[in-house]
Write a protein that binds this DNA or RNA. Structure first.
Length: 404
RNA sequence: GGGGAGAUACUAAAGCGGCCAAAUAGGACAGACUGUAAAUCUGUUGUCUUCGACUUCGCAGGUUCGAAUCCUGCUCUCCCCA
């Protein structure tokens, strides 16, 4: 009942930047179709933060495609690897997390992952299963399978070493642990970002040492963040979370640089790329293409109604300069006022705008602050508070005052 | 174990006794221009109820009228030798 080989290859290779060894990969797929045997497709996640963002959905979507083609998706929750901390792409050692935090994150992860994957067909494995009770002798045996030179070949380690930035010994274990995961679940294919190349290769070596068939790798590009330069990551603040509100999701998509659109379409949607390329070549106004992208993403994680509503809202607020239809309400107690007035900086603080007095003053002095559309650039001003007054700081921040 | 170098704000990096709340660049934020795009120009970027005051330059002490700058101890990192 599995789809034809050609169809599988087309679906699977979309967006894939690196498949290696490609011959082995094709052979595995071919054999799977011929023998009607699903492949075991591995994806490892480290629940280092409680929520996931679009960058990670790139690989999740790929895993889902494998599921839809009838293969067995295996999601490894790296409850132990997360404690070690993946040094990939890091320029310094990662903060250690407690195992407890990691487990808490993991459950929230699974909920979010279910928005993309078919949870019923998903095999979920915690790698603490085999790491928890490992004896020291076994650890040494694992460590002996890789040399220091091999580790230092890795680009990020290499850079850190050359820059004289510290590398802790335990960080060398990360790739080994990830590799051992592949051995234990007998992976045929491992998915990952291109930055996982090294780790996945270690898995191949360990599998080979364990006298089993080696996994093939399918690497996907790293999704750039909203700034269009650095990779999407929570710590850089350039991310869209799958749990973001429809408003934020749509708004964030609209703010990405144009050159990012093609990548986002390719990695985050199922639109036919030849069609997308025509749009981007000038068939559609860039803003329109971006809106299609935004709506697609909002629809995927929320609903079509949300998407349509946010588009209309967005156009109303930003294109026509209207106020948002709903904005956070801030309650002001009358007792806080003097003669019905309040110091401007205190008002902003009550609204939650800015993180310090200095920053709030800065906003005021730069003319970013408006009360019912009246700009006030005086940081000493006393504002007469009126019930229902709308306060704006910059283009994006709004609040409505409720006097009580 | 021995010797050497270093730790400055979000990041990189100057400063090496007063002119330092600390140059410069990036980032971030705001204004203009726009499509909440890019590019560009301009400004802001320690904290604080404003004047002005207060606390920062790895941590703890000390010298001095005065310290990011000098001294002592501690912590951490890198390099070289073993």
């Amino acid at each position: 009942m599995e789809p034809s080989l050609e169809k599988q290859i087309k679906t699977i290779k979309r967006g894939a930047i690196d498949i290696f060894p490609e011959k082995e990969f094709d052979a595995k797929l071919k054999k799977s179709v011929e023998t009607q045997t699903p492949l075991r497709v591995k994806l490892g996640v480290d629940p280092t933060s409680p929520d996931i963002h679009l960058g990670f959905t790139v690989v999740l979507r790929k895993l889902r495609q494998f599921q839809d083609l009838g293969h067995q998706a295996v999601l490894i929750i790296g409850d132990y690897t997360a404690v070690v901390g993946d040094p990939t792409g890091k320029s310094s050692t990662r903060e250690a997390l407690t195992h407890k935090t990691v487990l808490q994150n993991a459950s929230s992860y699974l909920d979010q992952v279910s928005k993309i994957l078919d949870r019923d067909k998903l095999e979920v494995v915690y790698n603490g299963q085999w790491f928890e009770d490992m004896r020291f002798g076994e650890v040494m045996k694992l460590a002996s399978q890789m040399t220091v030179a091999q580790m230092l070949e890795r680009d990020d380690f290499n850079k850190r070493y050359k820059n004289h930035t510290p590398i802790s010994l335990h960080e060398f274990f990360y790739p080994l642990m990830q590799g051992l995961d592949s051995v234990n679940i007998k992976a045929d294919i491992e998915l990952g970002g291109t930055d996982q190349r090294f780790n996945i290769l270690v898995g191949r070596d360990l599998q080979s040492n364990a006298k089993m068939s080696q996994q093939a790798a399918l690497c996907l590009p790293i999704l750039p963040g909203l700034d269009g330069v650095q990779k999407m990551s929570k710590s850089l603040g350039n991310y869209i979370g799958v749990d973001d509100t429809p408003k934020n999701m749509y708004g964030k998509i609209m703010s990405i640089p144009d050159h990012l659109m093609r990548t986002y379409f390719e990695l985050l949607t199922d639109y036919d790329m030849s069609e997308v390329d025509r749009w981007l070549a000038g068939e559609k106004h860039p803003k329109e293409s971006k809106s299609i992208l935004g709506k697609y993403i909002v629809t995927q994680y929320h609903s079509e109604e949300d998407a349509i509503r946010e588009e209309a809202e967005f156009n109303s607020v930003f294109a026509s300069g209207n106020k948002p239809s709903d904005m956070p309400e801030v309650a002001i107690v009358e007792a806080q006022l003097e003669n019905g007035q309040m110091w401007i900086v205190a008002v902003l603080e009550a609204c939650g705008f800015g993180s310090s007095g200095g920053e709030r003053r800065r906003l005021i002095k730069q003319g970013a602050v408006k009360f019912d559309d009246v700009k006030c650039a005086d940081d000493k001003a006393q504002i007469t508070i009126v019930d229902g007054m709308i306060i704006q700081a910059g283009k994006k921040r709004f609040a409505k005052l409720i006097l009580s």
